[in-house]
């Protein structure tokens, strides 16, 4: 499964420009599901037909990134954020544009306190020495994402955009395994989650499932002096109780707990006091859709080096397969 994860993490796909990820998933799942369609917002919807209940499993394809807002006379690029970026975390990072142009994020050095650093005091250096040269390489509105590779080390994966290619990988793997069930399963790869849970909203409206799950990442509380959170790397996928966008529907949560228990799959409970997931927009669509979530414990979310545990990923696939049966 690592090969699949590696491939997905390598695809370029900042919010609103997910087509590379979408094309990759389509090529893998072609002939493996009964129907593949794309909606107006760019959501990729893969359907395994059935006569029973309709389950929607959503994993967002988009990743955080930066967008060029201005190119100055000397060829430096000013940028805005696509999704949640912390200045201290992106400082010194390499970023890559869709056309392969690579840049480095740096800052105006006359700042007295690095804690006061804000994005508007930062720039991307693509090595250009004039506006003309820079404009030959990138245009206003071009988006870039972290440039970093994906590594498997001692059963853990270190990579950029595990948020949320790991969710995509889980759903792709599940679709390939094709769990035996009469239920109809919608594997939905959503667009624009990082900028406001947007893709999932239209996808859910088009499907109106009986139940929905967001498959995404969650933080952990197991790193030095981290914010308290009862989630550890490697202790099992999490069953969402609540995040800032949704309180899981009791019927969904209870079904997950019951299936995890009976199949002997380790699990943890997840309460994220900040941050939302696709379940946040799905559950208030079309008069209300019972929704919840399964997440992969992830360290250093929204950095260029997120860490997940392969065991949690494999257990998430298994839990979801039992959930839809």
């Amino acid at each position: 499964m690592f090969e699949l994860i590696n491939k997905l993490a390598g695809a370029y796909g900042p919010s609103g420009n997910e087509k590379q990820v979408s094309a990759l998933i389509r090529s893998i799942l072609k002939d493996k599901v009964d129907e593949i369609r794309e909606d107006a917002l760019g959501n990729l919807i893969c359907v395994k037909k059935g006569s029973g209940k309709k389950f929607m499993l959503a994993a967002h394809m988009d990743q955080i990134g930066v967008i060029v807002t201005f190119i100055d006379d000397k060829g430096f690029l000013r940028f805005g954020n696509i999704g949640g970026l912390r200045p201290q975390v992106i400082l010194g990072q390499r970023v890559v544009f869709e056309n392969g142009t690579t840049g480095v994020i740096w800052y105006e050095e006359n700042i007295d306190d690095i804690k006061k650093l804000k994005l508007d005091k930062m720039y991307i250096d693509i090595g250009a020495t004039s506006r003309e040269e820079a404009e030959g390489m990138v245009k206003l509105g071009d988006q870039a994402v972290y440039a970093a590779d994906t590594k498997l080390q001692n059963g853990k994966i270190i990579s950029k955009c595990m948020d949320n290619r790991i969710g995509c990988a889980i759903l792709v793997q599940m679709a390939l395994n094709s769990p035996k069930t009469e239920n109809e399963i919608y594997y939905v790869f959503t667009a624009q989650e990082e900028v406001g849970l947007r893709g999932a909203r239209t996808a859910a409206f088009g499907i109106v499932p009986d139940m929905a799950l967001a498959v995404d990442v969650t933080g952990t509380g197991d790193t030095p002096e981290s914010k308290p959170m009862a989630v550890r790397l490697g202790a099992g996928p999490t069953i969402k109780i609540k995040d800032a966008s949704v309180i899981s529907h009791p019927a969904v949560k209870d079904r997950l707990i019951e299936r995890a228990k009976s199949a002997n799959i380790p699990y943890q409970f997840e309460i994220m006091t900040f941050g939302g997931t696709d379940a946040g927009s799905i559950h208030i669509t079309a008069g209300g859709i019972p929704s919840g979530g399964v997440s992969v414990p992830t360290r250093h979310i929204h950095s260029s080096a997120e860490i997940v545990d392969m065991k949690d990923v494999e257990n998430a696939v298994e839990l979801l397969e039992h959930f839809v049966k």
């Binding site: 308290p228 959170m229 009862a230 609540k242 309180i247 309460i271 006091t273």
Partner: peptide
């Protein structure tokens, strides 16, 4: 409030709802 963790000592951690 919502319980977010149960400590070994029996105290409950919580977050606001």
């Amino acid at each position: 409030l919502i319980v977010t963790d149960i400590e070994e000592s029996g105290f409950l951690r919580f977050a606001p709802v």
